[in-house]
């Protein structure tokens, strides 16, 4: 029975994720059509800023941009689900192809950063909560309030200053690019350069890639650290004040066991949801970190597209960011169901 319950739970969550995705697509569609009200303006979005009237009219005809709005939406959905996000007017390549090239590069440093945030944030949040109003609590709080309220580029700046400038003679960390440009890209197997290089045993590439990853990863970690640790502390505080923790004390367990075994294990459940929030937040951090460190991922092509007046690119990147967050949300929901059986029944 339990297995069947869980399957139903997973299917329900999956349907939920698909509905959110459809809603996101509808929202983006409405946004575009509310801003570009005429078919010609819409065509200019697809054709780029330097297109002639004849070209625009051809595009209107080809993509049925003068059709009723619901027909356009259905066409749009069909196109998105068949992987056709449009043809970029600047790069002269399909959007999906360009984005699939840059997306793994961003995720390769973002996912470790999020994992680092979750590990360090959970630990420090628990330490702060269990030593409430002692100096260590104040120190952790001061640190996360600082990183929380500082703009991400300031964090990037400090990371650059400390690790690449002051410690530069010892660390030798590169501050721009995602890999040594003289190394040739390993042959495409998974599309993720780092994983491809590992499969290919191209260790010089792996080494160069990992070294380039450090600074942007640290930036994203420190940026998302503030929000996560703050929430981790609050959640742990709530758990430590609950009845079953008091019971654990009454049973005569030591403080260490109560806080880190009983308390933290129960605090982990709500923290799973926070991980998604951290992931979503770290996208912002990644945009800025890539801008500062010239790391050629999603944030970099976004800034290039903004400077080059390529709204279609920014639009499709946002779609991918949304999809990645919806997938993360789905995974977190499943984890939540595994950790907390009560959720499965509801």
């Amino acid at each position: 029975m339990a297995g069947r319950d869980f399957a139903i739970f997973v299917i329900r969550r999956f349907i939920n994720a698909v509905i959110t995705l459809l809603l996101l697509l509808l929202l983006m569609f409405i946004l575009v059509h509310a801003i570009y009200t005429t078919p010609i303006a819409l065509a200019r979005l697809y054709a780029g800023p330097h297109s002639t009237m004849a070209q625009l009219e051809a595009i209107v005809k080809e993509y049925h941009l003068d059709a009723p709005i619901y027909v356009q939406f259905i066409n749009y959905l069909i196109n998105v689900f068949s992987g056709n996000l449009g043809y970029d007017p600047i790069y002269k390549e399909p959007e999906a192809y360009i984005i699939m090239h840059y997306l793994p590069i961003t995720l390769t440093f973002m996912i470790p950063a999020v994992i680092l945030t979750v590990l360090v944030g959970t630990a420090l949040g628990a330490v702060a909560a269990s030593n409430r109003n002692k100096w260590i609590d104040y120190a952790i709080r001061a640190f996360y309030i600082f990183t929380w309220s500082s703009p991400p580029y300031f964090i990037a700046l400090l990371v650059l200053l400390v690790f690449a400038f002051w410690l530069g003679p010892y660390t030798h960390l590169p501050t721009s690019g995602y890999v040594n440009p003289l190394l040739s890209r390993p042959k495409v197997i998974t599309g993720w350069p780092l994983i491809d290089a590992i499969i290919d045993h191209d260790w010089s590439y792996v080494n160069s890639y990992l070294i380039h990853m450090v600074l942007p990863m640290l930036t994203v970690f420190l940026y998302s650290f503030g929000l996560y640790t703050r929430m981790a502390r609050n959640v742990t505080l709530d758990v430590l004040e609950s009845d079953f923790v008091r019971l654990a004390y009454v049973k005569g367990l030591s403080r260490r066991v109560v806080v880190y075994r009983v308390g933290l294990r129960n605090a982990l459940i709500p923290l799973v949801t926070l991980m998604v929030l951290t992931f979503a937040l770290s996208w912002t951090g990644a945009y800025v970190a890539e801008d500062v460190f010239d790391y050629h991922g999603m944030g970099y092509i976004t800034t290039v597209a903004i400077a080059g007046v390529d709204p279609l690119m920014v639009y499709d990147i946002t779609l991918f960011v949304g999809i990645s967050i919806i997938i993360a949300n789905f995974i977190a929901d499943i984890l939540y169901g595994i950790l907390d059986p009560r959720v499965r029944i509801a």
Partner: peptide, 20 residues
């Protein structure tokens, strides 16, 4: 509707809207 908005971080949504 709020679900759809909150699926993407507000800053990233603000970037795309302001670019449009």
């Amino acid at each position: 509707v709020t679900d759809a908005f909150l699926a993407v971080p507000a800053i990233i949504l603000a970037i795309v809207v302001s670019v449009l």
